[in-house]
Design a protein around this nucleic acid. Structure first.
Lengths: 206, 206
DNA sequence: ACCACTATCAACCCATCGGTTGATTAAGTC
DNA sequence: GACTTAATCAACCGATGGGTTGATAGTGGT
């Protein structure tokens, strides 16, 4: 039960430090929003987890909604760095799985946003299209079967990659293992990579 | 904007009809819970949509939580009927996609439940295992590659099949089409079936 | 016609929650 | 070291929303 329990600055640290405070709030908010979703999250819970007075959320971010938007914006901004076009697709997908596993709360946050009706479009359409274009290149290069629309394949892969995030209960029931554990992530990444390889190579490994 | 707008019983209908009322409430609740998730749903919205006084939700179901549990229970109970083991896997998956497309709210409800920390396990583990066992049979019969764990493949397929439900915004950004439309469901089902066929036949169709 | 009972509703109640206010104290500045 | 400004907090406020209460009106039985 100790998610970074480090309130009341260690002796020698600054007593007042807006950057540190803001960072703590953001971190706590990601955890809370990710775990429960926007509506179910109490700003007092965020404040408690951050070890800080709840008023500071208004002070620094303009309230619950402002804080949420800030997080979404940051995520959205820094989102476009993964996915190296030079790696084999199987590896790209596997590393995507590992990334989401390391930042479960962040990933779940994105899914919450997708799921809720009436949330402002949160992803980056430009980025998505770019990824699809790369899939199309792979297809043209013969790395993928020609009868599959790259856009839809992209969707399939994204959904599949986020399975341990999105369907943890189903995952547990199916496999009997803990979908939040790092080992699970590794195994799942490996298995998904195999699936992709079967697609790429028509059954051949390598 | 008319989602079954039929309050105030048509002339000739019974004025009081507990079954009808309960059914309306359940139907409205599925829609509301599915759209916004449990926490963000207002019981007054459910009542309004059902064309009924909000107190009846307490009267018949013991409040918001009772209503939710009732729905989850019913879903869980009637869940295990799909998935014919005699069809080819590609067709099974495709029809699963179509089913979720027809009952978006129901499906989203299940995903909400999966996503939220601290929701009681909602799926039927027994059923899941059964499905995995069938996948294993298919694998033994040579219909699936031997180097993939059937349990994980099951998870991949379920996640992929629910992509239009779970990631509608991503779907829209990637494809430029409306992921809620029936045409989209058809196309997606078709494409996913192709992917599965590539897995099954190592690239061969039929 | 009367009665008992159940379904339904409008109005109210109160806990919760996000936000605000005003005071307090640490950090710079000259 | 006085003074200013920024950071932090405890206490309060208003709105929202789930639940409850008490009254009313269909409905079926006699």
């Amino acid at each position: 039960m100790d998610h970074q329990t480090r309130r009341s600055p260690a002796p020698g640290e600054r007593k007042r430090d807006p950057e540190r405070t803001k960072a703590r709030i953001v971190e706590a908010a990601i955890a809370e929003f990710g775990a429960k979703g926007y509506a179910a999250t109490r700003i007092s819970d965020i404040a408690d987890r951050a070890g800080v007075n709840k008023q500071l959320i208004s002070y620094y971010f303009g309230g619950k909604e402002g804080l949420y938007n800030e997080i979404a914006r940051a995520w959205h901004q820094r989102g476009g760095e993964m996915m190296d076009p030079d790696q084999p697709l199987a590896d790209v997908v596997a590393s995507f799985v590992m990334t989401t596993a390391e930042q479960r709360a962040q990933g779940k946050l994105m899914v919450w946003a997708n799921l809720a009706d009436g949330t402002p479009e949160s992803g980056d359409a430009e980025f998505m299209r770019g990824q699809v274009a790369r899939l199309a290149e792979r297809q043209a290069a013969g790395e993928l079967p020609p009868d599959i629309d790259p856009a839809f394949l992209m969707l399939v892969l994204m959904a599949a990659a986020s399975a341990p995030l999105v369907l943890p209960q189903v995952a547990r029931q199916i496999t009997g293992e803990d979908p939040e554990s790092p080992e699970f992530a590794r195994r799942y990444a490996d298995q998904l990579a195999r699936v992709v390889r079967h697609l790429s190579g028509g059954g051949a490994h390598g």
